[in-house]
Amino acid sequence: MSYCIASRKLLIALLIGSPLAPLPVAKPKPAGDVQTGKIIFEKLGCQRCHGSVGEGMIATGKDASPPKIAATRLSLGDFVQSVRKPKGQMPPFGSQQVSDPELSDVYAYLQSLGSQPKLVLPSSASPQNGQHLYMAFGCYECHGYQGQGSVETGGSRIGPPQIPYSSFIAYVRQPTGGMPPYAVKAASDAQLADIYVFLKSRPQATPSKSISLLNQ
Results as ranks from 00 to 15, higher is better:
residue 102 E to R: 06
residue 123 S to I: 13
residue 117 P to L: 14
residue 139 C to G: 06
residue 137 F to V: 14
residue 108 A to H: 00
residue 146 Q to G: 13
residue 122 P to F: 03
residue 126 S to V: 10
residue 138 G to W: 11
residue 138 G to E: 05
residue 136 A to Q: 13
residue 149 G to L: 06
residue 117 P to R: 06
residue 119 L to Q: 08
residue 134 Y to C: 10
residue 125 A to G: 00
residue 136 A to G: 01
residue 103 L to E: 03
residue 132 H to C: 08
residue 128 Q to A: 14
residue 106 V to R: 01
residue 132 H to Q: 14
residue 123 S to V: 14
residue 97 Q to N: 14
residue 139 C to W: 09
residue 101 P to I: 02
residue 142 C to K: 04
residue 96 Q to S: 15
residue 148 Q to S: 08
residue 131 Q to M: 12
residue 124 S to W: 02
residue 96 Q to D: 13
residue 94 G to V: 09
residue 142 C to F: 00
residue 135 M to S: 11
residue 100 D to K: 09
residue 131 Q to D: 08
residue 129 N to L: 14
residue 122 P to A: 04
residue 107 Y to P: 05
residue 98 V to M: 01
residue 150 S to D: 06
residue 115 S to N: 14
residue 143 H to I: 07
residue 100 D to I: 15
residue 147 G to T: 12
residue 103 L to H: 03
residue 111 Q to N: 08
residue 127 P to T: 08
residue 101 P to K: 00
residue 118 K to R: 14
residue 100 D to L: 13
residue 102 E to V: 13
residue 139 C to M: 11
residue 140 Y to L: 10
residue 115 S to R: 12
residue 135 M to Y: 11
residue 138 G to C: 07
residue 115 S to K: 09
residue 113 L to T: 01
residue 103 L to T: 03
residue 145 Y to R: 06
residue 137 F to D: 12
residue 97 Q to C: 02
residue 128 Q to C: 01
residue 148 Q to W: 05
residue 112 S to N: 05
residue 108 A to M: 02
residue 109 Y to Q: 00
residue 106 V to L: 01
residue 149 G to I: 10
residue 111 Q to D: 02
residue 99 S to C: 09
residue 98 V to T: 06
residue 141 E to Y: 11
residue 137 F to C: 07
residue 125 A to I: 12
residue 113 L to V: 03
residue 94 G to R: 04
residue 149 G to Y: 02
residue 144 G to I: 12
residue 145 Y to H: 10
residue 135 M to E: 11
residue 148 Q to L: 05
residue 136 A to V: 05
residue 120 V to I: 15
residue 112 S to E: 09
residue 105 D to Y: 04
residue 114 G to K: 01
residue 136 A to R: 14
residue 120 V to Q: 03
residue 141 E to S: 11
residue 138 G to Y: 10
residue 94 G to C: 00
residue 109 Y to F: 13
residue 96 Q to N: 04
residue 127 P to K: 04
residue 144 G to M: 05
residue 119 L to F: 05
residue 120 V to F: 01
residue 123 S to A: 14
residue 136 A to F: 06
residue 117 P to S: 10
residue 133 L to M: 13
residue 135 M to Q: 14
residue 137 F to S: 11
residue 118 K to E: 12
residue 132 H to I: 15
residue 143 H to E: 02
residue 121 L to R: 02
residue 114 G to L: 06
residue 141 E to I: 13
residue 123 S to L: 14
residue 132 H to F: 11
residue 118 K to N: 08
residue 121 L to T: 08
residue 148 Q to A: 03
residue 131 Q to N: 08
residue 130 G to V: 07
residue 113 L to R: 07
residue 143 H to Q: 03
residue 111 Q to V: 11
residue 116 Q to V: 15
residue 141 E to W: 12
residue 95 S to D: 13
residue 132 H to R: 15
residue 106 V to E: 03
residue 145 Y to W: 09
residue 102 E to F: 06
residue 110 L to Y: 05
residue 107 Y to F: 12
residue 131 Q to W: 02
residue 148 Q to N: 03
residue 133 L to G: 02
residue 110 L to I: 04
residue 146 Q to W: 09
residue 114 G to Q: 04
residue 111 Q to M: 11
residue 95 S to I: 15
residue 95 S to Q: 11
residue 144 G to C: 08
residue 101 P to D: 12
residue 149 G to V: 02
residue 137 F to E: 12
residue 115 S to I: 15
residue 137 F to I: 13
residue 151 V to F: 04
residue 120 V to E: 15
residue 95 S to M: 08
residue 106 V to P: 00
residue 138 G to M: 07
residue 95 S to P: 12
